[in-house]
Design a binder for these strands. Sequence first.
DNA 1: CACTATTTGTCCGTATGTATG
DNA 2: TCATACATACGGACAAATAGT
Lengths: 289, 289
Amino acid sequence: MPTARDTTAKSDSAALDADPDAAAAHFWEMRLSPDMLDEGQPTPLYHQIYMVMRSVIEQNEVGPGTLLPGEQTLTRLFAVSRITVKRALNELAADKLVSRHRGRGTIVAPRSSIPMVRSSFDNLIESLQEMGLVTQIELLEVGEVSAGDSAAGSLLKLPANALLHRVVRRRLLEGQPLAYLITFTPKDIAASFSVEDVAHKTFLALLERAGAAPHEAEQWITAVAAEPQMAAALDVSVSAPLLKIERIMRDASGRPVQLSLGYYRPDRFQYHVRNVTLREQRGAALAAE
Amino acid sequence: MPTARDTTAKSDSAALDADPDAAAAHFWEMRLSPDMLDEGQPTPLYHQIYMVMRSVIEQNEVGPGTLLPGEQTLTRLFAVSRITVKRALNELAADKLVSRHRGRGTIVAPRSSIPMVRSSFDNLIESLQEMGLVTQIELLEVGEVSAGDSAAGSLLKLPANALLHRVVRRRLLEGQPLAYLITFTPKDIAASFSVEDVAHKTFLALLERAGAAPHEAEQWITAVAAEPQMAAALDVSVSAPLLKIERIMRDASGRPVQLSLGYYRPDRFQYHVRNVTLREQRGAALAAE
DNA sequence: CACTATTTGTCCGTATGTATG
DNA sequence: TCATACATACGGACAAATAGT
């Protein structure tokens, strides 16, 4: 992780320890290469380079203030023309990820520093406050849909002519968009929910009041590209990656009482699993093989 | 799901039930629209259309034998020129997802039916076989990196001059790309790993042999956009959403013994969590509020 | 202060790819 | 299929700003 003027920078090579600039150069030589790009892809080269550089910055491989290699150097490292490199760097600048100045170079911009939520579902009682208090809810839509018109109907195991209570909300973290949440509840359970209720009370409380207290839950976690609607609500670009958490909650009798679809900004929310025990962890290890 | 000559086709509208062709037309009218394309994106329009149609086919929204709308119709639905639609359909044909015949139209090809893996880490001993036997591993890279040159070093809590054993692999499911896996192991633990070992044995076995049997694991799950390299390996386009699972494994003494970064195709892998108990589930419910 | 090396900005001409009608 | 327009990518050239000598 080379920093612009960091005389304490270390490296594996003793020769590089003395010279921080050489250490930084070594870092980029190792990190960037022409085979990170693919001519066969329909995506333009400048955007592929943009993706690589953005990843380096967002994954904190280089810190704010770091001087990126010059256009000439990147031209050599990626084996493309200078115009192509320039365009990639300009896209980074347009996204405020770097700042560019003639004669000075391209410098990694300071972090926006919006805190990240790490939701762990094995000890969430503690992070409950972090999650519940620092974040706000915005009610976007309330309405009804036919079970037959929505994939939610079959997941909740309802006949096609049944009605579903549908709520769309947005969760904010420190005033910044965090998640886009769609909740489906069977009409008979949601009959007593008023708009006021939905806007101000938790669904957990409402479900308990309706005599449909959740007893178990099942979740599927995956990644999706942001569709225009949620992209606008979450202030990301269309097709940006989002973490999707689909959850079905059932009551003590096993009847599905709620389906929720949550779309989370990955830069502000991570799903955390810890203390995987040995038995599970053997599975986890195998899955990573 | 309209099928070419399926008189039993159903729809939410009674009027459409009588005419299967009208029902199919209605399906496509609802499913496709110009909003699904983004002129502002660097990805060419023909490829965006290709992605949309491929998704429709691979998600089983239409079955094999289904007649796709003609080029004229797609030209209208997507609001692009006929040549652009033609190119998208030709790419689908090149991928053997459809067959095209003059005068007949474009027909969805029989399924290769790539199953989806649902990795649940609470009962993985059973799906262990599913995961271990049905999938294959390809070794892409083996090498060493300096801890200081990689973010992995600090995560494994190693000094900057320490060495890391780095392995890049690809996991295939039924011959199709499933995951791109990068594994970092401290050099002292990995000293006994040969290339043969890495290519044919599980890391779990190798770690146990090296006296660094994993005892606990911690995971972070998030979504990222595919970089060019992993996009090529996973056969997705650059910037496609991928599920990222970062995992640190520690031995009984708490020392980190391995860091693995897994990038999974969301259409072939989902992280599944079930049987969330009441205490956890109250937290889960709140997080979704 | 000038001089120089470095770095980004701008412009040209050309070839190919993308998209329209 | 053709003609047209714009985007992408290349190589090259020169100008303008910056930092160090």
